[in-house]
Nucleic acid binder design. Structure first.
Lengths: 352, 352
DNA sequence: CCTGCCTCCTTAATCAATTAAGACCTTAAT
DNA sequence: ATTAAGGTCTTAATTGATTAAGGAGGCAGG
């Protein structure tokens, strides 16, 4: 079972390789009769058509879009926000008839060969921490690039929301309800696996730009309302899971004085905080208000959250990369919206 | 900004292309000094390293695994079962340092070019209906193939569960609790978009082998217990969503006599059935028992379901395709397990 | 008969690399 | 001095296709 190429078929039929190529890719350049015989021999030899790699090389297009996540894929797909974004992007790829090449970036691993070796026409980068080596590798490839959420790369299109504004919107909501004792649970600030309390300087040093911005928004709104941010208990997680949220919830709710409102930067985390409240027999929203983020898992739980256009962002990323027109660099900010549900209410009256 | 290749660098330095290639791929074949200069010039010219496509062609490997879903990706990722499987596969791909090329197969579309043109080393096919043209295309490529869930292709490895046994296990559970008036809601039997009642001959003609098998299991267990299957109301859906489940639930619960137990082939559908029951003020499990499938979204809702090893199946698929050793053809069946939670109980006493 | 025009096919350059084999020079051992 | 052994680089074949340009033959019109 030697390898079968165009040449094999050409030799069998006593024609040139070029003719066989035309038979496959431009039927009208070849007589119907000869084309029939070409297909016949191809079938007989089990030839499935021109080798895609060779074709890609000659044509200069790969027929695929590269996708980079910071997280292990197993994590990425556990996050409903990522799934929503992915759906939008996948639909765009479908429409364009190109594949989506998901590139593995093992956690903490500095090996970036996958990026170097990826057979793609463009890259979509999602949520990479500042200074991640894979990003340099992507930029070195000199292919069209779109960055989603973070980090902003001057000279390339960026898609996301106005994070500080969205964060401020969430915080202002509870502040306007009258809350003054806040607590915060956030995931995805740093890449170092830290779990636990985080002071202001550590918060500010977060390596993920989007989450840093979201937090800045929290702080700005809090200070605007006269809350001393340095006193706001801030619990950091390394995994975006319900269980992690519960852990943060227990830590925050054990603080003295106990927060009356907890801000989280993902809905999944917020669900975990609700679990913690339930564990302690606290009434939500009577005794505790909880705000999520993304409106990805919030509806059933009646969670107040910030909605962002996940799928639209994915679709737009696809359009920019596959649409042919060279994308304009600069930030494209998508709208966000506060969705008030049943997890927030005014704080309980102060104990006398 | 002309194209920069190995040759460009070679010319600049007055060395041969081969030398530059060695500098990149086999540092010890070239003097340290020259290698340094090569890298210097490469940097200066903005050369990111050998062209991946040309490399792939020459080396004969693509560095990617092709993945085929029957569904639009947007659907596929809405299903927690698919996400779980995908996580397992992605982890295996990560370990092997290869990418995962997701191939778009627009619904009903007969265009299979994406499969023909995919630059991959192997294919993983998930849940394709019988006779889907993309499968022929995949087989024609003569690359390693693993099929997951369906359809079974003689001569290639197959991974999945014993569907008839799993279906029978689910049905037997409610039958043994004493239920005799069953109802069934299933998605993914046919590819024709049909929504509504389905008679036995249509059920039997389902084009998705796995779901057909699962249904066969339901029927076998029912008949074993003396239930006349032709009388069992059977509602078919075309989308696996909670809303679809609710629709099926309403249809089934309006049947006369009303079923006391409803079997569904996905957890998501089961959640929708629970919604319908809640709409009607029916107590679950007091007045109605509901069984899901996959244990993918069941835990929080207290759903009785069949657990299957989603991630393990994905991981094994990856291992078979990337492990180097040629995979043995034939079926590999993974274990399944009945998880009894709070959605099933004995039927209410017959009205006198 | 000559010319022009089709149709159908071939020639040959090209895409961007990898790598076995060989050339050339230096150094070390016999 | 001779030979062998390394180290470093070059030559040239190879991977499997695409496609512009050109040639051969047939046919119609002047």
């Amino acid at each position: 079972m030697a390898k079968v190429t165009l040449q094999t078929i050409a030799d069998r039929l006593g024609v040139s390789r070029a003719t066989v190529s035309y038979a496959f890719s431009r039927p009208d350049q070849v007589s119907a009769e000869l084309r029939r015989r070409v297909m016949e021999v191809a079938d007989e030899l089990g030839y499935a058509g021109p080798n895609p790699t060779a074709r890609s090389l000659r044509l200069g297009r790969a027929g695929a879009l590269g996708l980079l996540f910071s997280e292990t894929l197993a994590y990425a797909f556990a996050d409903p926000y990522a799934v929503g974004f992915f759906q939008g992007l996948a639909t765009a790829a479908e429409d364009a008839g190109v594949g989506l090449l998901i590139l593995p970036l093992p956690r903490g691993d500095q090996r970036t060969e996958p990026v170097r070796n990826a057979v793609v026409d463009a890259f979509c980068v999602v949520s990479l921490p500042d200074g991640h080596p894979a990003l340099d590798e992507v930029l070195a490839r000199k292919l069209p690039v779109v960055v989603v959420d973070e980090p902003y790369v001057p000279g390339h299109p960026f898609l996301g929301i106005d994070e500080p504004a969205a964060g401020a919107l969430a915080a202002r909501h509870v502040l306007e309800l009258g809350h003054r004792r806040l607590g915060v649970a956030m995931v995805g600030l740093h890449d170092d696996g830290h779990i636990g309390w985080s002071d202001v300087s550590r918060q500010r040093a977060a390596t993920f730009e989007a989450m840093r911005g979201r937090r800045d928004g929290y702080q700005a709104a809090a200070e605007e309302a006269g809350v001393d941010w340095a006193r706001v208990p801030f619990y950091e997680l390394s995994r975006n899971s319900r269980e992690a949220g519960r852990q943060a919830g227990h830590a925050l709710l054990a603080a003295n004085p106990r927060p009356t409102a907890i801000l989280t930067n993902t809905d999944v985390l917020a669900l975990g905080v609700l679990d913690a409240a339930a564990d302690l027999g606290l009434d939500v929203p009577g005794e505790l208000s909880v705000v999520g983020f993304s409106d990805s898992a919030a509806q059933d739980a009646g969670l107040t959250t910030i909605r962002q256009a996940k799928q639209e962002i994915g679709a737009e990323a696809g359009r920019l990369l596959l649409g042919g027109a060279p994308a304009r660099p600069g930030r494209v900010l998508f709208p966000h919206e506060l969705i008030v549900r049943a997890s927030t209410a005014p704080p309980p009256p102060e104990p006398p």
